[in-house]
Amino acid sequence: MKIQKKKDLLIEPLVVLNIGLESFAKDLEQQGVKVLHIDWSPPAGGDPELVNLLSKLGS
């Protein structure tokens, strides 16, 4: 069963969920791949000091 699904993945048209860097989604779109882009970035832009504060202040 699992093997069958993997085969489908390679045969059927690819649908991509892209999280984060929008340029990845755009590159795929230019090649005709269907992409759903999720606008996401790490909390506080990934700044460790601010991430630590956010965890302490409990957002």
Partner: peptide, 10 residues
């Protein structure tokens, strides 16, 4: 507007 949510979400 919660500043924590601004920084959390960007």
């Amino acid at each position: 507007i919660d500043i924590r949510l601004i920084l959390e979400t960007g």
